[in-house]
Nucleic acid binder design. Structure first.
Length: 327
RNA sequence: ACGGGCGUAGCUCAAUUGGCAGAGCACCUGAUUCCAAAUCAGGCGGUUGGGGGUUCGACUCCUCCCGCCCGUGCCA
């Protein structure tokens, strides 16, 4: 049964170095997906979307390239999947405008993220912020994606893309494929400061290609359950980010061992961190190894090839959309 | 384009009539701790958006420029 492979499109914010939370929460799944013969994957790095928040031009380009590099290091094979920069696909902008005309402004104004961003950066409430979902719809509908891996925060944006596609198809005839969300059980990796999830802006994580020594320096000083003031004080793994990370990366036996050891003061936090560090090193060793071999040229080549592939898909869609709309 | 508001440490904001530019948070170091956290001690941090002027002395007053916000207008 030669089933036609599903088109998968994923967008990633251009934030710079990918950290463990990015890896466990999303990128690792993307790698697995990309190895599925029934999936044809397109991985876009959303640098156009990044412009809606004030960004330093000196920093955006390196950050964007760093994400691309980390994707490759994580195991995305550029021969198999298309890795591209959103801004390299000029067709996105054309499709964006065409789709604007089947987008209800009311829906955009009601968008929760639009309101949140307006509050977050009141000095820069630009139109891009408002049009953000339309651009994203163009990203998704351009390559006629079947599946879109999304986090909870992006689910309403995908809904909007579906509404736009539905409205277009209704007015101009069946043209755009209806994308479906692809949701993995999303996991939340806590930050090393114990104050929430790992995030780039809070600087409470570590890069997936960092040296083990560098990772250890960050792990060593990471937050732990404050109840364990002395080595002999018992603690609660549920209150310790280290224990939570253990659950994601360590084998069951070790998880039980450290949780039990924590509750009974059988092992110290440093021991616990050392065990975690060992497993982390194993987990990330292939990533680090690939990263070391990667050259800037490899990254550029992958992005160029990816852009060409995704643009081909876009050109087909845009040609049909133009024609249907009467251009 | 006009009118109004604003611009001070990475962030939030002080600074009397014009009188030594400060605090909190964040960050770094030390004490402490199995490591952290908390606490204590110390430290880093500034061309006060920029130029010019008045003055013995300007964050403060005058002037011009830059940038942002709000409102109004003009052109398309």
């Amino acid at each position: 049964m030669a089933k036609k492979p599903k088109t998968v499109l994923s967008l990633c914010r251009a934030t710079g170095v990918l950290h463990l939370g990015n890896y466990l929460g999303a990128v690792r799944d993307f790698v697995a997906l990309s190895e599925d013969p029934n999936a044809e994957c397109y991985f876009g790095i959303a640098d156009l979307h990044a412009l809606t928040s004030l960004t330093d031009p000196e920093k955006l380009r390196p950050a964007t390239r760093q994400v691309a590099r980390d994707y490759l290091a994580a195991g995305i094979d550029p021969q198999q999947s298309a890795l591209f920069l959103q801004s390299d696909v000029k067709e996105t902008n054309e499709l964006f405008w065409l789709l604007c005309n089947v987008t209800a402004t009311g829906e955009l104004l009601r968008s929760k993220t639009y309101k949140e961003m307006s509050d977050k950066q009141p000095e820069n409430v630009n139109a891009g912020l408002l049009m953000y979902p339309v651009l994203m719809a163009a990203d998704i509908l351009g390559p006629q994606a079947d599946l879109v891996p999304v986090g909870d925060d992006q689910i309403t944006h995908l809904e909007m893309a579906r509404n736009i596609a539905k409205r277009f198809n209704h007015r101009f005839g069946e043209t755009l494929r209806m994308p479906a969300p692809y949701r993995k059980s999303s996991i939340r990796v806590p930050g090393l400061d114990g104050k929430g999830k790992m995030s780039k802006s809070d600087g409470n994580g570590f890069g997936i290609a960092e040296e083990p020594e560098a990772i250890w320096e960050k792990l060593r000083v990471a937050y732990t359950d404050p109840a364990r003031q002395r080595r002999t004080d018992p603690g609660n793994p549920d209150l310790c980010p280290i224990a939570t990370i253990h659950r994601f990366v360590s084998p069951k036996d070790d998880v039980e061992k450290i949780e039990d050891g924590c509750r009974t003061a059988g092992i110290g936090c440093i021991d616990c961190k050392k065990i975690l560090h060992g497993h982390l090193s194993d987990l990330l060793a292939p990533v680090r190894a690939r990263n070391q071999k990667l050259t800037d040229g490899d990254v550029s080549d992958a992005l160029a090839a990816g852009a060409t592939r995704v643009r081909t898909r876009f050109q087909e869609t845009v040609a049909t959309v133009r024609e249907r709309m009467g251009l």
